[in-house]
Simulated assay, not measured.
Amino acid sequence: MALLNFRKRDDAARPAGTAQLEAFLNGYSIEVMPRTAEKVPDFKALLAPGTRVYIAHIDGTPITDMVATAKRLAEDGFPVMPHFPARIIADKATLADWIARYQGEANVDQALLLAGGVAEPQGAFHCSMQLMETGLFDAAGFRRLHVAGHPEGSKDIDPDGGMANVDDALRWKQAFSERTDADMALVTQFAFDAEPIIAWVNALAAAGITLPVHIGIAGPAKLQTLIRFAIACGVGPSLKVLQKRAMDVTKLLLPYEPTDVLTKLAVYKAANPDFNIAQVHFFPMGGIKTNAQWAIAHGGASTTPVADR
C-alpha cells in the first residue's frame, strides 16, 4: 500500500502534460544526412526499434552516399525513408536508377517526395507531383509515399507569401492518395508555435484533406543555430517565438528545447482525439544524439532503445 501511495504522489508531481507528451512522442521519426550519420557510432543505442529514419538529400550529395547510409540503417533494423528532391533529379531515367539502387542495395520501399531546396529545377522535374505522375514508385512496389506540408506557407510555392498554390498542391496530393495503394502522409516543415499548427491542421480537416500529418519539429539546439535555419528554410510567424526568446538575456545562451510546443500539441491531441497529427518528425538541428536523448527523457518506454530497457 505504501508503494502505491508513493507512485500516486510521484505521478502527481510530474509536470502537467507529461503523460500526454509521452503518448504523443510514440512512434516519432527523425532525419539524418549521410555526413551527420557518419558521426553516429551506433544508431541502435539511440533510437527505439522501428523508428523511421529519413535521409535528407541535399543538393551535391552523391547518390552512392545516400544509398550507403540507407543500407547501414536498414541493416540495423530501421525503416528507411530517403528524400527524392524533384528539382535535383535530372530525368526519369535518373529517378528510376535511384529507386532501383535503394531497393536493390537497401531494400527501401518508402520515400519522401518533395520539390527540394534549390530555386530552379536542374532537370525535368520541379515538384513532387511530377515524380508521382511517373508511376515509377508504384511500379517498384513502394508501399509508403510521404509528401511535404507547410503549416506556415512556402515561399518556394507561393512567393507572395500566400497559401493558394500550397492549398492546390494539397488537394492534388489528397486526390492522388485516393487513387493509389500507397500509404501517404504529410510531413511538415518545422515550426515553433503550437497555435498556427493547430489552426492549420484543423483547416485541413475542414477542407477535406485527410492525409495523416507528421508534424515537423526542430530538436534541441542552440538558439542562434535554430534562428539561422528557420530564416533559411522560410519558417513563418512562429519564428517570432525564437526571436522573443533571443531578446531575453537570461535565455539567450540556453539551448532551445521543443518541450513547450510539443506538450501543447500533445495536450490538445489528448483532448481532441480526432485531431489529425499522427506522429512527430524531428529535424535534429543540434545533433542526432542530442535529439534522441531528449526524446528518451520525455517519451517514456516507447522511445527507449532496446539496450536501455
Rank of each mutant, 00 (worst) to 15 (best):
T210H: 13
T180D: 10
I30F: 05
P121R: 05
G116L: 00
A301K: 10
A23E: 14
P284R: 05
D109G: 02
F43S: 13
N272A: 11
G208M: 05
A100D: 12
T134V: 05
Y54L: 11
D59L: 13
R179I: 10
A48N: 05
V53I: 14
E38R: 13
I209C: 09
I88W: 03
A278G: 03
R228Y: 07
K8F: 07
P41F: 06
D11I: 05
I58Q: 13
G123Q: 09
A111R: 01
I99H: 06
I231L: 12
D308S: 05
A93F: 04
A124N: 05
R14V: 06
D183T: 04
L47Q: 11
K173R: 15
Q243W: 13
V241Y: 06
L242D: 12
H126F: 01
L21Y: 04
V40M: 09
M285W: 01
R14Y: 06
D160L: 11
G60I: 10
K39S: 09
A297M: 03
T134A: 08
A175Y: 06
L239P: 02
F176Y: 15
A230Q: 05
A203C: 04
T263G: 08
C127G: 07
K269A: 14
F283G: 03
I88A: 07
P82C: 04
A232P: 07
L226S: 03
L95T: 02
N107I: 00
T134E: 08
P305H: 04
G299Q: 09
T225V: 04
S154V: 08
K92H: 07
A139T: 03
E195N: 03
A68G: 01
Q174S: 11
M285K: 06
L114D: 00
P79Q: 10
T259V: 13
G162L: 14
L262C: 13
V147K: 10
L226E: 02
A45W: 14
M129L: 13
V67C: 02
V166C: 15
L114G: 00
W294C: 07
V241N: 14
L112H: 00
V32S: 09
T290W: 03
A270Y: 13
A139M: 03
D193R: 00
Q243P: 09
L226M: 06
Q174A: 11
N272H: 15
K92G: 02
F6W: 12
E38F: 01
N272V: 11
A199L: 09
I89V: 07
R87V: 07
A106K: 01
T69Q: 03
A106V: 02
E133H: 01
A266N: 05
G216C: 08
E38T: 01
L131I: 06
T64Q: 02
N5E: 15
Q122A: 14
P85K: 08
G17T: 10
Q20N: 13
F142Y: 13
L114H: 04
V53R: 11
G123S: 06
W98G: 01
G216H: 12
Q279P: 00
K289E: 15
F190N: 03
A205K: 15
D109M: 06
I55H: 09
R179G: 09
T259A: 15
T180E: 04
T94A: 12
L145R: 02
F190K: 07
G216E: 10
T134D: 14
D183M: 05
L170H: 12
F43P: 08
A230G: 10
A74V: 09
T180R: 11
D11P: 00
